[in-house]
Every structure is written in C-alpha cells, then in structure tokens.
Design a binder for these strands. Structure first.
Lengths: 340, 340
DNA sequence: CTGTTAGCGCATTCAT
DNA sequence: ATGAATGCGCTAACAG
C-alpha cells in the first residue's frame, strides 16, 4: 500500500539503513551525494515513515492522553472548551498529538489504567481536578508521566499549572474598592473546593488590604449553577437595606448570571451602582445585558506551560518550575458598574 | 518495563503463540486447561497486550482523526463542544480513540495529508464543513476513509450525517404560525452557506404550506455574529410599523441574541408579542432574559450515527445509509413569546 | 492442541 | 560511507 523504507531504498539504489540515516539526519553516516539521491527517491515514491513502526521501535507513541468530562445540560465549561483547542495546538508544536478520551466521573481509574497498560499514551494531561483527585493519586503511584491543569491535594508533589484565583479575585476586589464599594460580597463553591477556596482567599486578602472588615454574611457558598447566584441575592436582600452588598464577585460566570438575573428582577441597579463580576469569561458574557465583567483565565498560556512541563516530565529532566501560577485578567465590561 | 507476551509465556510455561491464541480467543488452538494457566499468568504478571505492536502487525491504529477549529473570541460553538465529547464516547464504544488535532483554516490539507501518510489514523471525522470543503474533496480523491458531520458539495458522493435544518426551521415556523404570527422573518448566513440555505429552505417551505406569502424584505443574511442580529432588526424597523416582522427565526443562537438585544433596546416586546427563535441551544440560552427558544441539534445521536457509518466505511461494508438526516428539536422557552 | 518462526516497518549495531 | 542483520511486541501461518 503506502511505500515503505524498502521501496525508497530500492528507488534510490541504497540500503534501508542509509535511507534511515538520511531521514534522521545522522550525517556521520552518509555522503552528500547519497543524501540527494535518497531525498529524491523519497520524493518520487511519496514516502513518509510509518509512525506505528517508529513507535514500536522507540517504545513511545507521541500521544498525550487527555480526558473530557461531560458537561451536563445547562452548564457551561468555556474554559475547557478553549483549553482543548490550545492544548492540541501546543502539543503539536512539541511533536505530540492528543488522544482524547472520556471517563466516568465516579470511576476514572480503570480508563487511565488501561491506556497506560496498553501503552497507548506517553503521558497524560489532567484537567478538571478535584481536591483529592484519584487520578492524580493514581498516576503519582504509578510514576506515570503527567501534568495537571489545576491543583489538588496540597501535600501531593506533582507538576501543575493553575490560574491564580487568589490574585484574580484580589484584583477584582481592588477594582471594586476603587469604584467606591465597601460592601462587597462573594459567592464561592462548596467549602471543600480547593479552587473555590483559593479564589475566596483573594477576596479576604483584598478586603484586609483595603481595611474593610470581613463579614461572614457576605460570603456564601453554592454549586456551580445559575440558581446559586439567585439564592445568594435572595439571602442578601434579607439584610437591612443599608447593609446589603453593593458589589458581588461570583466564583464563576454562570453564578454571576444568576446574580444579575435575580438582582435585575428584584430591581437592583445592576451595571450601575450594583456591581457584578464573574470568573472565566464565557463566550456569551459580552452579549449579556449588561455585559458581564469577569476574570479571564489565560488558557493559551496555561496550555503552553503545561506542554513545556510535560516535555520535561516525559524526558525526566529537571523538574524545577514544577508549579506555575498564572494570573487571570480582569475584563471590565458593564456589569461591574460605575464609580459610586 | 511493562511485561510482554514472553513474560506471560514463561510464567505460564507455554509458548507465546499459545498466549496470543488464548488472548485472542482462537479457541481452536488451545485446551481449556491451557487457557486457565495462561489467564492466570496474565493476571499474575499484570499483562496487557501492547497496542503499538498490535497496530504494526495489523496495519491499523484504531485511531480516528478529528480536527478542532478555533472559535474566535466572542463566538461560540456549543455544538462542536458537545460534539467532541459524544464523538469520543461513541468512538470508544466501537473500540476506537480520537486523535484530536488542529488545522489552519486557510490550508487544512497538509495536516490531513501528513496524518494519512504517517499512518497515524484509520479514518477521519470531518466537522465544520463548508460548501466546497477542500478536506472532503481531498479525502474522496485519496479514497481515505472518513465520515462527515455536515454536508458539502451536493455532487460529491460521500458519507455524512447532518442535522435537518430544513425540517427544524419548518417546525419553528409552524409553531410561530400556530401562535398567530403572519409576519415571520428569518436571518440566514451568507448566501453561499449550504447549511444556512437548508435552513432557509425550511422557512420558505413552511410559509408556503401556511399560505403566507414570502417577502424578500423579511429574509436577511449575515455573518455568524451578534451584530448580524442587531443589524437585521435595524433593517426591519425601517419598514412601516404594520409591516414589521412580529417573529424572527435566527440562523443560530448568537444571531438570535443580537436580535433580542437590539429589539429590547428598541422597545420591542420580546418574549411577549415579538418572538425570537434561535438555532443550536447554546448552554446559556436558558438563562437569558427572556430565555431563548431554539432548535437543538441531536448531537449525541449524530455522533452515534457517525461512528456506525465510520465502521462501515473502514470495513468497506455496504455503504447504504450513507446519508443520515436527523431533525433538531424545538425547545420552547420564553423568547418565542405568547399566543397573539 | 502446542511450539517455532516469519514479518509488520523502522532504527541501529556491527561489519565491511 | 554503506549494507546486512537484529529486534521492538505481536499475530498467524506452518510444522509437529
């Protein structure tokens, strides 16, 4: 079918070894004249080395396993959607391809295990990490190469890249304070969410720096849902009106949308003196009315760093820079309102 | 490193051929007793056949190439986001994995070509097709196995699955007519968009069936953008008020959002007597105010059909059912309004 | 029923 | 500088 190295050798009138040398730039082993002949023959027969054979020979696959998780109806994961694209792109730049696979949320290990045992991938990129992510635990134990987008158990030692939720929210609070807000609230994820807690940390740090007292009534937790945002607003509206928050940072854009929707329905001046800031920059955020201010994760840079790190890990090189924290960017649109 | 077939053979006290036979269920070639021994040995040494070696032997990869295209800032492609997940899942059910890759929009062929020549994939799934898609043209010429999500040049003969935009829009118009609308407008994509034109076909078919005259002023074309929706509304507002559309079907949700935004800013009673219906069901559509009525593509079923078809194509089986058209589902929410 | 062996396509060591 | 031969791990034809 497809021409192989023998065909080229025959066409060039040399041995297959010579062809291999030329193609792999082992310049010690051939003359300039031979090189020309070989290259010409390669061209003529239309030859490209077979990847599978190379893989078998070199005991690698140049494939990086990356798992999707399903986003249920009604949710979004704009971050992962972009992530996948940029990850593929960066991987290609490094000479890898992505092997995309799925796994059941309640039992991921067998899927990863099978891929390892079959030798289908050289490494994994883990995303959608949770606090004690079993996948990370497993891969550490197996000593199988991987890098993670997102942190997990802080006591585990593994390479990761993450968005600096703390500094992101810090910047958002700072911005709101600059606008004149003092009663700033935040909605986090459930208390066991490590990512959520990093973001909340930025909130309290920034309040502290601005010498604004931390009020527990202003900090609510909820699932990643529009409903969580609505519920929070309902809570806050129970407070005396001069104690109700004038600004809200939501752990994520979907929650922020819930906040905006409920607030507008209750007559709060969203985008004027009632400020809302989300996290992630969902694609439609800019078309909401008012358009959604948010913290955008540097997805492209994250992917770049991940692949860099992965190359180190796979080659067992120095694992310095094993942890990289990248700040998100505050995107100011209408929902964060005006100067008070 | 990882145990290979020799290790198992040694552990079981048999030859490697026997191990292979047992593992591949060539039951003519071993006794029940041997089978037990082998399986026990497999278990003991923790063996899984190496995929690369198998691939080399069988001249296949069990990998399906699937390319992402980048969605620019400010756009969405909720369909493809879901598509990728379900495609991976269906592929796995059929014993395949997805090789995800990217390609430059203006020059896709070399990327596909390289994958073929290197022997990295057994087949492709094409998505985001355009009218004269060069990728499809190329793959047909190469006689390389592929299936397409989406149609292309109608004269080309190739296997595809597509959403039936015609019947979808037909149903939407029918619904609007049932609500009492007579002045129904539609925004399509540029005139050379085959997908767009199928949807427009549903529009005119339904009008015809309802005996409503087709008015060219009611049919506008635009890019896939929020702005296109806004521009259309602006156009229609130039008409005498008793001739302005009372209902709009947008070629896609982003355009629908533009329609809603502009309409609301101009004081049109969106979600009441001014109806808007989109296409695709973007994840946030249900949280818009008013929530967006839309036509949801049956992505999971599409992926199922694609993989079924792909198995046929790869195995050169009968290529009946080479074309599958699946109707989208009308999701009625608030934006399509109330009975007039 | 079991074992020996060729060969998938390539990279590489060893002779020459 | 070039070629012959080996082996990566597996499957399957063939011999026994």
């Amino acid at each position: 079918m497809a021409p192989n190295i023998k065909d080229v050798a025959k066409a060039a009138g040399v041995s297959i070894a010579t062809v291999s040398y030329v193609l792999n730039n082992k310049s010690a082993f051939y003359s300039e004249k031979t090189r020309k002949q070989v290259l010409e023959a390669v061209e003529r027969v239309g030859y490209t080395p077979n990847v599978t054979a190379r893989n078998l020979k070199s005991s690698q696959t140049r494939l990086i396993g990356y798992a999707y998780h399903h986003v249920p109806q009604g949710q979004v994961n704009s971050v992962l959607d972009q992530f996948t694209y940029f990850l593929a792109q960066e991987a290609e730049l490094a000479g890898y391809h992505l092997l995309a696979f799925t796994y059941p949320l309640d039992n991921p290990i067998p899927v990863y295990d099978e891929l390892i045992r079959k030798g289908q991938v050289d490494a994994f990129v883990i995303a959608s990490t949770i606090t004690n992510d079993p996948r990370i635990h497993y891969l550490i134990n197996q000593e199988f190469p991987f890098v993670s987008f997102g942190r997990s158990n802080p006591e585990w030692d593994f390479p990761w890249v993450d968005t600096d939720g703390t500094s992101g929210v810090y910047a958002a609070v700072e911005y709101l304070v600059g606008l004149g807000h003092r009663r700033i609230a935040m909605i986090g994820w459930p208390e066991d969410s490590i990512t959520g807690n990093f973001r909340l940390q930025g909130y309290s740090d920034a309040l502290h720096a601005a010498k604004i007292p931390y009020r527990t009534e202003y900090v609510l937790h909820g699932e990643n849902s529009e409903q969580a945002g609505r519920a929070a607003v309902q809570q806050w509206l129970l407070l005396p009106s001069d104690e109700q928050p004038t600004a809200v940072i939501a752990i994520d854009d979907l929650v922020a949308i819930g906040v905006m929707n409920e607030a507008m329905e209750r007559g709060l001046p969203v985008g004027k003196t009632f400020a809302v800031i989300g996290f992630d920059d969902v694609p439609l955020g800019q078309y909401l009315r008012p358009s959604l201010s948010t913290l955008r994760q540097p997805i492209e840079e994250i992917c770049h760093q991940l692949i860099l790190m992965l190359e180190d890990v796979v080659n067992n090189r120095s694992l310095k820079a094993q942890r990289v924290l990248l700040p998100p960017k505050l995107i100011v649109r209408e929902s964060s309102g005006i100067r008070l």
